[in-house]
């Protein structure tokens, strides 16, 4: 693991799609693929411990949030953590879920454990945690200190305005990794 820390090997393992904005202050470890138009804030950590992490398009990964592919004893082979498109990981949220669909929102300090699979359009409310094995049905909202559940009629809108704004702002104040993946034509094959 220690050689992962050296800049050269780190750069080697991280694939960044065109138009993605990944700040250099972000903590990235292991084999990570970040899709185009995804924003990774400084101090966000993406840690591919057990296997590679593949992150789709247009996600926002905010400060102090953690996406981690954790090693667990009952793993067979190398598990791949796949995160879809247009998800938002708010400040200090932790996502260990092996599979995350599209348009999900993890609010501040939310926690999703490894056994959970998020489908599409789910909102894990602030400070809510999901620890038991389950597949969260589409458009589920979990909110409040009691982790109440509710189904919403439509999924949360993708944060396009926010993405556009962040692209402008973060670029002006932070060093970023250069995208090193060919444009989206071939990217779709990954």
């Amino acid at each position: 693991m220690s050689d992962l820390m050296s800049p050269s090997s780190r750069r080697f393992n991280i694939k960044i799609g065109s138009g993605a904005l990944v700040c250099e202050e972000a903590i990235l470890k292991g084999d990570i693929t970040i899709g185009s138009h995804t924003v990774v804030h400084p101090r966000a950590s993406i840690i591919a411990e057990a296997g590679p992490i593949i992150i789709g398009e247009g996600n926002i990964i905010e400060e102090m949030s953690t996406i981690i592919n954790r090693i667990s004893p009952d793993d067979t082979g190398t598990p791949v953590q796949i995160i879809g498109n247009y998800n938002v990981f708010e400040v200090d949220s932790t996502c260990e879920a092996s599979k995350v669909g599209d348009n999900n929102v993890l609010e501040c300090k939310a926690y999703v454990s490894k056994q959970v699979e998020l489908t599409n359009g789910c909102v894990i409310g602030a400070s809510c945690s999901l620890r038991d094995e389950e597949v969260v049905p589409e458009n589920t909202i979990i909110y409040g200190s009691q982790c109440h559940r509710r189904e919403m009629n439509d999924k949360p809108y993708p944060q396009l305005g926010q993405l556009e704004y962040l692209m402008k702002m973060l670029l002006g104040y932070h060093h970023i990794y250069k995208p090193n993946m060919p444009p989206p034509k071939t990217e779709s094959s990954t």
């Binding site: 409310g125 909202i141 409040g144 509710r150 009629n153 439509d154």
Partner: peptide, 9 residues
């Protein structure tokens, strides 16, 4: 803002 209920729902 908490449970994302909306009048459209």
């Amino acid at each position: 803002t908490l449970c994302r209920w909306s009048s459209r729902d």
